Amino acid sequence: MAKQIEVSDLDAYYGSHKAIEGITMTIEPRSVTAFIGPSGCGKSTFLRTLNRMHEVIPGARVDGKILLEDQDLYGDDIDPVSVRRTVGMVFQRPNPFPTMSIFDNVAAGLRLNGRRSKSELEGIVESSLKDANLWNEVKDRLNKPGSGLSGGQQQRLCIARAIAVSPAVLLMDEPCSALDPISTLAIEDLISKLKNEYTIVIVTHNMQQAARVSDKTAFFNLAGQGQPGKLIEMDETSKIFTNPTQKATEDYITGRFG
C-alpha cells in the first residue's frame, strides 16, 4: 500500500510569487518524514503540492516533477481528485463534517467513491476507527455528531476518515498544534503505528515531536522576506538533530534563529 515519492526540482507559485524553489527529495515508503523550519519557509506549501491541494488556490501552480512510484502526479492524464484519494491529508485543526455522525464522517469518502453496501461500509468504518485508536471510545455512539468529540478525538476521527479510502500516503499539516499534551501523545503513538502501512509526511514546528516520531527530517529555510523557501538539508532524523551538515540547520535546531 505505501509508496515512494520522488520530487525533482520543484517550484511552487502563488500567482507571480515563487513560494518554494528547487525542491528535490525522496520520501521513503513505510516511514515518517518530518518537515521543519521557520514560519513562511514553504513547508505547508510543499506538503500541499504532494497531493495537488496547492492548485485549488486561484493562480497557484507548480513546475517540476513529483512521482508516486512511477506515476507523474502532475501528468496531463492524471485526475487531481484521484491523486487526493491516493495521497490523503490531515489538517492542522480537526475538521470533522459538522452535520455528519461519527459513522458518516468515516464513510464519507467511501460513499463518494461509489461504495454503498451497508455491511462493507460498517466493516471499513470499524477497521478504520480501530486503526485510528478510536473505536473503543466511540463504538457505542457512532450515530452521534463527530463535532461532539474532544479535539484529540476529532483529529483521530479525521485520520480514520483519511485512511478509510486506503491511501498510499498520509500527509499531516501540524496535526497536533491545536491539541493538549495528552492528545498529542495519542496522535504521535498513532503515527508510529500507521507508518507500518503508509508513507507519512508531517509538518511540525515542534522539534521534539519531529525527533520523536520521524525517521527522516527535512529542514527548510528562506534567505529573506519575500524570497522562496528552499530545502537546506534532509537526512536521518538522528543525524539532523545531533550532527547536521549545514550550519543553518544547527542554528535553527539550537534556537539561534527561527
Rank of each mutant, 00 (worst) to 15 (best):
A132R: 11
P181F: 12
G151W: 02
N136V: 00
D131C: 12
A186S: 14
Q154H: 06
T217C: 07
A186V: 03
N133C: 14
L157R: 12
L190T: 09
D189M: 12
S166V: 08
L134F: 03
L185Q: 14
D189L: 04
L171F: 07
L190A: 07
A164C: 06
N136D: 15
S147P: 00
E174T: 02
P181V: 02
N196R: 15
D140F: 09
Q155E: 02
R161L: 09
G151N: 05
G152S: 05
V213T: 01
G148A: 12
D131A: 15
I163G: 04
D180S: 11
A132Q: 08
K139S: 14
L194A: 02
Q155N: 09
A160I: 03
I163Q: 12
D180E: 10
P175L: 02
I200Q: 04
V201N: 02
K195N: 07
Q208T: 14
S147L: 02
G148Y: 11
S177D: 11
M207I: 13
I202H: 09
M172K: 04
A210E: 05
E137Y: 06
R161F: 00
A132Y: 01
A186I: 01
K130R: 14
C176W: 02
P175G: 03
K144C: 13
M207Q: 12
A178G: 06
D140W: 06
D180I: 03
A186D: 13
N196P: 00
S183E: 10
D180M: 06
R212Q: 13
I159C: 04
S214C: 00
L142Q: 06
T199E: 11
G152Y: 06
S127V: 14
M207G: 01
L171T: 07
L190P: 01
S177W: 12
G151E: 07
I159N: 06
E174P: 07
S183W: 02
V138D: 10
T217Q: 08
I159D: 01
D140G: 13
V203G: 06
N206G: 10
L142G: 01
L129V: 03
T199W: 05
T217R: 09
D215H: 06
N143E: 15
D189E: 15
Q208D: 14
E137H: 10
N143R: 15
S150F: 11
L129H: 09
I182L: 14
D215E: 02
P167E: 10
T217M: 11
S166F: 13
L134D: 01
L170M: 09
A168T: 14
L171C: 02
S150R: 05
S127Q: 15
Q208R: 15
D140P: 00
I200G: 08
S128G: 09
Q153W: 05
A160K: 04
L194I: 10
N136C: 00
Q209D: 00
